[in-house]
């Protein structure tokens, strides 16, 4: 009797010392991966494909919880506040690295101090697209065309501070262009004005761009990647077009709250690396225009995050679009 009480007490004390998670028994219950954006997006689609494999590997169900709001900050904050026991993950992507620069004062979490990276599992690209009837054949002609418009041209952005907005600002800085940003709530609502030619340009996600380009409704001038897109192999890369610094690939990964046991992080990382080399994962990713990432360590993903934070900070500063 005394033994049991002692064991129970010491167990309790140990548990308190070690935090709420014990790395040996993890995972002992359902895992939740919070994606801080509205459901149905590319990140969610890819994450669902991934967690199906992770769930089989880790032996616990993993649910995807879509928590949109405030450009991803609502869901991200929720993860930052949750217990670092390995049972709550954040689906991290580019906006996770842009918010510090956009809201230096009001942001209530730090992507580097409140979170630890686990792994990145996929990337996707954006394409420079223009309406089908715009009289340009390639990026060079487009730049000349916009310059001749003398500030009359507009481009579509999927909300202020979005990747689409920031990437186009970077393009404007690199090519010395003048174009006004028209904000839309996400990419799909912008497509209609792009198709109709009311805006002259959009850095559009490949998943949306490919079918419209194939149908001749849009023209793709370049893909923002170092490699050509498998679906539209005729479209040159930005590197080929002479703008290597615009190869701004978008990535999807997993972060956990700071304080999550190292052993847990390593187990998730190993499971991710195992899943992303599976041929059926790559095949299903490809259907929604996501490329599986190369196997990577938490440190490598962390380095990518640091590099992205610096990159976007530079773009935000140069464009003067900080909102605090």
């Amino acid at each position: 009797m005394l033994k049991t009480i002692l064991a129970a007490t010491s167990g309790l004390v140990l548990a308190m010392i070690a935090g709420s998670a014990s790395a040996q028994s993890w995972p002992d219950r359902q895992i939740r991966m919070i994606i801080p954006f509205p459901p149905g997006g590319q990140q969610e689609v890819a994450s669902r494909i991934l967690v199906e494999k992770l769930s089989a590997e880790l032996g616990q169900p993993i649910i995807i919880d879509s928590r949109p709001g405030a450009d991803g900050n609502v869901g991200t904050e929720a993860v930052a506040k949750s217990a670092p026991d390995g049972n709550t993950w954040l689906g991290s992507s580019v906006p996770f690295t842009t918010q510090v620069a956009l809201h230096p004062k009001s942001l209530r979490y730090s992507p580097t101090k409140d979170f630890v990276p686990v792994a990145t599992f996929g990337t996707t690209t954006f394409m420079f697209t223009v309406p089908a009837e715009l009289p340009v054949k390639d990026l060079k002609e487009f730049i000349a065309y916009i310059k001749a418009q003398k500030g009359k041209a507009s481009y579509a952005g999927s909300g202020r501070g979005s990747v689409v907005h920031l990437a186009t600002e970077k393009f404007k800085q690199s090519a010395g262009l003048e174009m006004e940003m028209i904000p839309y709530a996400g990419q799909p609502p912008a497509i209609s004005d792009l198709l109709a030619g009311r805006v002259q340009f959009m850095a559009l996600g490949s998943v949306f761009a490919a079918p419209l380009v194939k149908a001749g409704k849009l023209k793709a001038l370049a893909v923002m990647d170092t490699r050509r897109n498998a679906e539209l192999p005729d479209v040159p890369t930005v590197v080929e077009a002479g703008y290597p610094d615009l190869a701004l690939k978008s990535f999807f990964g997993i972060h956990v709250p700071k304080g999550t046991p190292e052993a847990v992080i390593q187990r998730i990382n190993a499971a991710v690396n195992k899943a992303i080399v599976m041929p059926d994962v790559a095949e299903r990713f490809a259907k929604s225009n996501v490329d599986a990432a190369e196997p990577n360590t938490p440190q490598q993903y962390g380095a990518l995050i640091e590099q992205q934070i610096a990159l976007w900070a530079g773009i935000v500063k140069a464009a003067g679009i900080e909102t605090d």
């Binding site: 459901p39 149905g40 998943v207 949306f208």
Partner: peptide, 25 residues
């Protein structure tokens, strides 16, 4: 055109992409 009119349709676009069908012309 792949233009959803509301949140439910945006999800259906998502469901189509999961299946590898890009809504479009």
């Amino acid at each position: 055109l792949g233009l959803p009119a509301n949140a439910v349709m945006a999800l259906m676009v998502g469901a189509m992409t999961i299946q590898g069908i890009a809504p479009g012309p």
